[in-house]
Design a protein around this nucleic acid. Structure first.
Lengths: 186, 186
DNA sequence: GTCTATAGAGTGATAGAC
DNA sequence: GTCTATCACTCTATAGAC
């Protein structure tokens, strides 16, 4: 067989960026072809379920990243303060200081949500619960409510940062949340 | 001429709900036809610029609502505490306790943003500045940063509330922000 | 020879424009 | 309603690794 032009991993990562740019409904297969260099034949060979399957696999890919880099460290026994600091570092890195949006959040806002409801809900539930666990270990009051506030704050900061074309806003808000959680753990 | 089936105002309101449901890219003219009862001919009669113009007018409609009901009261001289309380009431009402998303926020997240960038930016800038003015009048420290936090918090709460199908989350977070602003003004 | 990844013309349906 | 462009998707075919 001919050599693969792209690993599956790379293809999914590139497709994710197209979804991020145009949204799920706004993404056409030709945009995906352009971004990946793969023709329709190749795309349907890898993803027989078409765009829906691509959406599923992109969400699974994102979830795996967050599970490994954010949720698991938060859940581990260990210093909650440093686990939370590592979460903020990873978040700032992942979202490119606010220049990159949260695809799961974007999927949550339109009719795409119905198609991927379970994955979207799972992503946020896992994040909130992992963060709440770390906060509770650190002795914070109302750990679950606080975790919801933080995750919502991050999502909102991404929306605003993007709307105002101001990555600085995202960084400032993350800094504020870092500080609030630090005092909550004190 | 035949009687109009729908006032322009009503048509725009219905189109807005379709955009809210499917996103801008995901909305087809036939969905708009179905929601308004207006054929393609009528739609192009009212909106010669097509979907783009509908998007513009929907955003202008939303902006006018927020200007009248939220920004102007916040900017007026008067008790900032009650102006801010009125803002939260209006927000909770407008977003149907979290069951309705923020269309401007949704537009900000995908490529739709480029088309409507100015209006999207104007909406959030006006909100943040009006709220910051009220907070500053009330003697809050870092009024602008706090206003950014609140507006981001509302956007994030809408995302989460929708993602988790949990309107309660939106209401709870609004309550927390009410309280935080109250102490910031004390 | 078999299997897999590639390419891309061609399908019907539907989009938005008028 | 009519138009053309484009949509998601199918199908046939080839190239090349084993």
């Amino acid at each position: 067989m001919p050599a693969a032009l792209l690993s599956r991993e790379d293809a999914i990562a590139r497709i994710a960026e197209v979804f991020r740019e145009y949204g799920f409904a706004g993404t056409s297969l030709s945009a995906i072809t352009e971004a990946t260099g793969l023709g329709k034949g190749s795309l349907y060979n890898h993803f027989p379920g078409g765009k829906d399957q691509m959406g599923d696999e992109v969400l699974a890919h994102i979830d795996a990243w967050f599970e490994a880099r954010i949720y698991a460290p938060l859940r581990q026994a260990g210093n909650p303060r440093s686990a939370i600091a590592a979460m903020f570092d990873a978040v700032e890195d992942y979202f490119r200081s606010g220049r990159r949006i949260c695809l799961v959040g974007a999927f949550a806002l339109d009719a795409t949500r119905d198609r991927f409801a379970a994955k979207v809900q799972g992503y946020f539930t896992a994040w909130i619960e992992a963060l709440a666990a770390a906060l509770a270990r650190g002795g914070a009051h109302d750990a679950h409510a606080l975790a919801e506030e933080v995750v919502a704050g991050i999502q909102g900061a991404l929306v605003l940062s993007r709307a105002l074309s101001d990555p600085g806003l995202f960084k400032r808000q993350l800094a504020q949340w870092r500080q609030r959680l630090n005092t909550a753990l004190a």
